[in-house]
Amino acid sequence: MDTALDRPDPRAILRGGLPDRYLTPDDIAEIFEVPKETVYQWRRKRTGPPGFRIGKHVRYDPADVRAYVTQRKSADQVAA
């Protein structure tokens, strides 16, 4: 059985390179330290990292998450 203790910390994986799996909404919430409901609100409003559906499940490509963070950092530097 796969438990949270069996998986490495998603934040550490993203710092060290791309994980070898798609990320879940729980992973995104943990990475950005926000409630999972915030992740779902971002998806509804199309303001957060882009996700996609696999059946009834939402998943996030780690490359898209990194690109989203890079874009946000660039936008914040221009605004400052």
Results as ranks from 00 to 15, higher is better:
V69W: 07
P49N: 07
D64S: 07
R72P: 00
G16F: 01
V78P: 04
T24C: 06
R72H: 04
V58Y: 10
I28R: 02
V34I: 10
R11G: 08
Q71M: 11
P25F: 00
K45N: 07
G17C: 04
D61W: 08
A63G: 07
W42Y: 01
T38H: 04
D6W: 10
E30Y: 09
K56T: 14
L5P: 14
P35A: 12
S74I: 12
R59W: 03
A75I: 08
D64N: 05
G16Q: 08
I28H: 02
E33T: 13
Q71K: 15
R53F: 12
V78H: 10
P62H: 01
R43S: 09
D20V: 04
K36D: 09
R21D: 09
P35C: 09
T70L: 13
R66E: 15
A79L: 10
T3C: 08
Q41A: 12
G17W: 00
P50E: 09
G51H: 04
R21H: 13
H57V: 14
G55C: 07
L14T: 03
R46P: 00
G51N: 03
I31D: 08
I28D: 05
P49W: 11
L14I: 11
R7V: 11
D2E: 13
D2G: 13
E33Y: 06
K56H: 12
G51F: 06
T70E: 15
Y40V: 03
V69C: 03
R59H: 07
R72A: 03
A75Y: 05
K73R: 12
E33W: 06
I54D: 12
R53D: 04
V39D: 02
Q77Y: 06
V34N: 06
R11I: 08
D27I: 05
W42H: 03
D2A: 15
R53T: 08
D9A: 10
H57R: 14
D76R: 14
L18C: 05
A63Y: 05
D9F: 11
G48M: 02
L18A: 05
G48Q: 02
L23K: 03
I13M: 14
P8M: 00
V69M: 08
T70R: 12
E30N: 12
Q41V: 09
R7S: 11
S74K: 15
R21F: 13
T47L: 08
T47P: 00
R46W: 03
H57P: 10
A79H: 08
D26Q: 13
P35G: 15
I54W: 08
M1A: 11
D2V: 15
R66T: 14
D20P: 04
I54E: 11
G55E: 02
L23N: 03
A79Y: 09
P49L: 09
E37Q: 14
P62W: 03
Y22A: 15
E37A: 14
A75H: 07
Q77W: 08
K36N: 13
R11W: 06
E37W: 06
D26S: 15
W42M: 02
D76S: 11
G16P: 07
I54T: 14
